[in-house]
Simulated assay, not measured.
Amino acid sequence: MGHQKWNWQTKEWPHFTFKKEAIEALERNFLQKNGVALGAFKHIKQEEKDQLLIQILSDEALKTSEIEGEFLNIASIQESIKKNLGLESTKRKLPPAEFGVSEMMVDLYKTYNQPLSHKQMFQWHNMLTSGRRDLVDTGRYRTHEDPMQIVSGRLDRPTVHFEAPPSKVIRSEMDEFVIWFNTVHTIDNKSISPLAKAGIAHFYFVTIHPFEDGNGRIGRAIAEKSISQSIQRPALISLSQMIEAKKKEYYGTLEKHNRKCELTDWLVYFGQTILDAQENTLKVIDFLIQKAHYFDRFSNQMNKRQLKVIRRVFEEGHTGFKGGLSADNYTRIAGTSASTATRDLKHLIDIGALYKTGALKGTRYYLQLSEN
């Protein structure tokens, strides 16, 4: 049987096509939401801006690793992000995996406006692979002779989902990719709309699969760089968080396109994922604004224990504590007695800082965020 070609073996490569009308509504929605986010961002104080930055970058670092099956420590990531942003200096030695991915996220944020270069991608690769001893090529494109394959199933009878271009052509493929990326992202280039640019950039890069490891993480960073350049400010969206939530769909949609250069369905999927990520950022901004109002209204009416517990509840983000806060949680977080906890909680309800549901052992407490 004749081998059906991979997309990079076809004569179309790398000239991708798509039906513009299929993503027009998504593009309009994207620009509108970007306007809303920009407006909301202008109304928050510097402290909230820093919190937003730390939260989005930490979530991204955590989730982009999780997609690859690497589960990192969120506290170490947050500390690394703060350190890399220069918001806090910690003397603690941070673990290499957490520090490395955080370093990449902060670099992506700080340099979003610079053209993409081989050097920057090599730096990202070095950051991601710091402390790794199992790779031949770190901070450079892969050199090994073996075909770069995405496989699953049994070792003796593997299913090959995709085979990337051989190592010997990587440099020339990547030269072309870098030129393409920087050309479509010049300010006056309106030939491709923002979502299409980001979707093609990600797809094009992961198809070449230029590194021995870390291609998914760098490919997602490139998509975020693309969006940031289109809107001319750091995008601050949790793209990886949205991809991770429906990981099967991400891999499935990639696989459906690995023998063709017609990318309409991929761009519809990826564009919608970017919109979901934007929506999530708006929720986070909204939550930070509510949090600031909340502390303005209540913090001077709270004792140290109450403040400690309320801050801890806010750390759970806009989704809140799963199943609400219980009196037992309160006792444990505040490090106090059950009777003091009961008194503290009653006071928080009286001033309107919390509301409760359920009764007896089933009583749960929630933040009263809306001012009604």
Rank of each mutant, 00 (worst) to 15 (best):
G2Y: 10
Q4K: 14
W6T: 09
W8N: 04
Q9T: 08
Q9E: 14
P14W: 00
F16V: 00
T17F: 08
E21F: 04
N29Q: 14
L31R: 01
N34S: 05
A37Q: 01
K42G: 12
K42H: 13
K42T: 11
K49S: 06
K49C: 08
L52F: 05
L53C: 12
I56C: 03
I56E: 00
L57I: 12
S58L: 01
E60S: 08
A61K: 00
K63F: 06
E70I: 09
L72P: 02
E79M: 12
S80I: 00
K83R: 14
G86P: 02
L87A: 08
S89D: 13
K93H: 11
K93I: 11
A97L: 07
A97Y: 03
A97H: 05
F99R: 05
Y112C: 06
Y112I: 06
S117F: 07
K119F: 13
F122W: 07
F122R: 04
F122Y: 10
H125V: 01
N126E: 15
S130G: 13
G131T: 11
G131I: 09
G131Y: 07
D134T: 07
L135S: 07
L135A: 10
V136D: 14
D137F: 09
R140M: 15
D146T: 15
P147H: 13
I150Y: 03
V151A: 15
S152N: 13
G153V: 04
G153A: 08
R154K: 14
R154C: 07
A164V: 01
P166K: 10
K168F: 15
M174Y: 09
M174T: 11
F181T: 00
T183E: 15
V184S: 10
T186C: 10
I187F: 15
S191A: 14
G199M: 02
H202R: 04
Y204P: 01
Y204W: 13
Y204D: 09
V206R: 01
T207G: 08
T207H: 07
I218H: 03
I218M: 00
G219F: 02
G219R: 02
E224W: 01
P234M: 06
L236N: 03
E244Y: 09
K246R: 14
K247P: 06
E249G: 12
E249F: 12
Y250V: 01
T253A: 08
H257C: 05
C261A: 12
D265Q: 09
F270I: 05
G271V: 01
Q272W: 13
Q272G: 14
A277R: 06
A277E: 06
T281L: 12
K283R: 15
I285A: 07
D286E: 15
Q290S: 10
A292F: 04
A292P: 00
S299D: 07
S299E: 09
M302L: 11
N303H: 10
K304W: 08
R305C: 09
R305W: 05
Q306F: 04
L307W: 05
L307N: 09
I310H: 02
R312Q: 15
E316L: 11
G320C: 02
G324I: 01
G324T: 02
A327F: 01
T331H: 06
T331G: 06
I333Y: 04
I333K: 03
A334P: 03
G335E: 10
S337P: 03
S337C: 06
S339I: 09
D344M: 06
D344A: 09
L345Q: 02
H347W: 02
I349P: 05
D350S: 09
A353C: 04
N372K: 15
